[in-house]
Simulated scan of single mutants.
Amino acid sequence: MNEKIPYYDCAIVGGGPAGLSLAAWLGKRGFRVVLFEKNSYPFHKVCGEYLSLESMESLLELGMPLESWELPRINTLFMSSPGGTAFTRPLKPGGVGLSRYRLDQALAARAKANGAHVLEQAKVGAVFQENEIFKLESSRGVVRAGVCCASFGRHANLDVKWKREGLKKPPNFIGVKYHVQLERPQDTIELHYFKNGYCGISPVEDGKHCICYLTTEKNLREQGNDILCLEERVLSENPFLRKALKEAVRLYKRPLTVSHVGFSRKSLIEDHVLMLGDAAGMIAPLCGNGMSMALHSSKLAADLVAQHLEGSISRDSLEKAYQGSWQSHFASRMRSGRLIQDLFLRPAAANVLVKALRPFPALIDYMVRQTHGQQPF
């Protein structure tokens, strides 16, 4: 009976940057890969849409036409407090502005070109093992695979079934995103704090800007769950943010939102499934490096999964090596991100912290280095 069920070397649940690039890497090496994505490409996602330069070499190696896209090169950070204190610093090594809409669509095309089977409108309901082989049940059918990886965001139904560690602490943040037309420097990413939240403004392709902010669910409830009221009464207390929101020409009829966002630690392996990208834990958005970390984690996984599929390492060695590699590359960045976010989200702390940082540019540069990879992967 099992012989009638399609078999793949690797099955991937979730088609964001981590899952798609993993599919592209493994497909490029000749492995049979299937990827399940619950949406259809292209689609927008709540995301800061800044990609640090550490990712460029890897994406170019995959055949992504980044140079032809003429993406805005971002090398400056502008930061402001709720009270209007602000400073500007060079951002090293810097990055580019790139929407998830374009990145995910291009990665999906690259994965398909490399032979991966990308299933859209495919929601996975269950993953389990039978005799060392994974079986995945989805809305698009059932498949078997020798290796399974997960790269879904936030809390998915599989998280609940696995009773994952990250579910113990309830998430309490919301994210809101717009694409806008806005007169701003093309080389600058802005970070504006407001009561119990912060907002990033950065250029993306085609002359647009991304406005994306994170705040507590409590903040929104206090404004009657009305996003416009939240922006007018809370975000606009920051004079820089008030000016930006007033001048922005919004390109969406309504904002893109996401709720129940959490940043608690998560396990890297669940029932022998490797977790990548946000499924392995979300970095605080103010650190601006989530897309790059997702791409990096997929490259680490691809190298190890390939060794396992080729018979060089056992499944146990694969899992131990992946956990060790992930911790080595990302654990410190995740800790730094949580610490920085916790500090700046404390009531009244953002004004004090921004004023305290302004006379010490070396300290600002140090904080940036804690959340950005310095070398290409």
Rank of each mutant, 00 (worst) to 15 (best):
L103I: 09
V143D: 06
S99V: 03
V143L: 13
R100F: 12
R140G: 00
N131H: 05
R140S: 07
E130I: 02
I133Q: 11
Q105M: 08
N172W: 08
R140C: 14
F134V: 00
R100S: 04
K163D: 05
G153T: 06
W162A: 15
R110D: 02
S99F: 03
E130W: 10
A126N: 08
R102S: 06
K161I: 08
G141Y: 11
A111F: 13
A126F: 03
N157K: 13
K112N: 06
A106C: 13
A106F: 01
S151M: 01
A113S: 15
K135F: 02
E132V: 01
A116D: 05
E132K: 14
R154G: 04
G141K: 06
P171T: 00
K169F: 03
W162Y: 14
A109M: 09
L98G: 03
E137S: 10
F152H: 13
C148Q: 03
C148G: 13
P171Q: 01
K123T: 12
K168W: 02
N131S: 04
A113G: 07
G97K: 10
G141S: 11
P170T: 01
F128Q: 10
E120G: 02
L136N: 06
P171H: 03
L107T: 05
A126M: 02
A111I: 05
A122F: 06
A122E: 10
F128R: 08
K123D: 07
K161V: 02
R102H: 07
V118F: 11
R100A: 04
E165P: 00
Q105S: 15
K135E: 05
V124M: 13
H155W: 14
C148A: 15
V124F: 15
R140T: 07
C148S: 12
R110K: 15
R100T: 08
P170C: 02
V143A: 02
S99R: 04
Q129I: 00
R154L: 12
A150W: 01
Q121T: 10
N157R: 15
R154C: 02
N157W: 09
E165W: 09
K123A: 12
V147R: 05
Y101E: 04
L103P: 09
D104C: 13
A156E: 08
G97D: 09
K123E: 14
I133W: 02
D159T: 07
A116Y: 07
V118P: 11
K161F: 12
A113D: 14
N131E: 10
P171N: 01
R154V: 00
